[in-house]
Amino acid sequence: MIWVTVSLAAATMVGMAVTMSYILGWANRAFHVDVDSRVEAVIDALPGANCGGCGYVGCSDYAEAVVAGKAPVSKCTVGGDSCAAALAGIMGVEVAQSWPYRPIVHCGAHYDDRLDRAEYHGEKKCSAANLVAGVQGCTYGCLGFGDCERACEFDAIHVIDGLATVDYEKCVGCGACAKACPRNIITMIPFKYERMLAVTCSNKDIGDEVKVVCKVGCIGCRACSRFCSLFHMEENLPAIDYDKYCGDFMEELSKAVQKCPRKGLVLMGKPSPRDQEAVSDKTLPRVIEADFKTTVDDTEWWG
């Protein structure tokens, strides 16, 4: 009588299937959630990295905000222009023009320019050295221990002769260096052009005090703000209004650059053809491979 057992087993499974699917079907209707089909479309169009660069918890959160009209379509830095265009297509809106954000180091002093430096034997990190008074005369400028270099995942910022220098060809604008800097001298600005003018000093002290600690620091002479309306003085430092920054001001800006007595206004960004020409006869230094027997492991562990 094996067939009775077999058919009973089959009947049990079929009965359960019918019952469960009835219950679940009822629940599906009772607990129905209206999901905007556009939300799913937007989630599909986003990179799905869940990096939080847009300021929302993840891609799905941002997608909901976009569909709800609370967020602009161009917030995704990872997806860039193509992603913004795709989102705009789904939402049926125009993409407002957006610019990539890139970091600018507001310090222009190399080792030789900094005065009053003391020997520092502590941990070779900016965050540690920043806690100690008197490592260098300038309490605002770059310390040169390379916290930003370690923070960068893209090998795009390097300490060159004691000064953090951004490699704009590699930089993707993630902002990790700006977060890592304990002195907050790295800021993210919209790069409306390949090269942007920047104030390379963060010292807020008055001119005489700056001259004591730095050969190139801003002395707060206000020459730039007199020649160009884009500058305004904040605590003895000129600040550039990047919202208004555009080609119309080029003449004023170049005048301000010429008048700066400390040469503290510098164009930053990708190298121009002229720069590349100037160094074309120089050969790259031989790359020295690290010897792992002698180099120190940078594992952060202090027992």
Binding site: T5, A9, T12, M20, I23, L24, A27, F31, V33
Partner: peptide, 29 residues
Amino acid sequence: VDLTILSYVVYIFAIASSVQFVEMYVRRF
């Protein structure tokens, strides 16, 4: 008549259905 051979498949069936139910409930509320 002994249907105990069905135990595993029936339990998985019951668990899967109740999880699905809970998921719908949590998603809604």
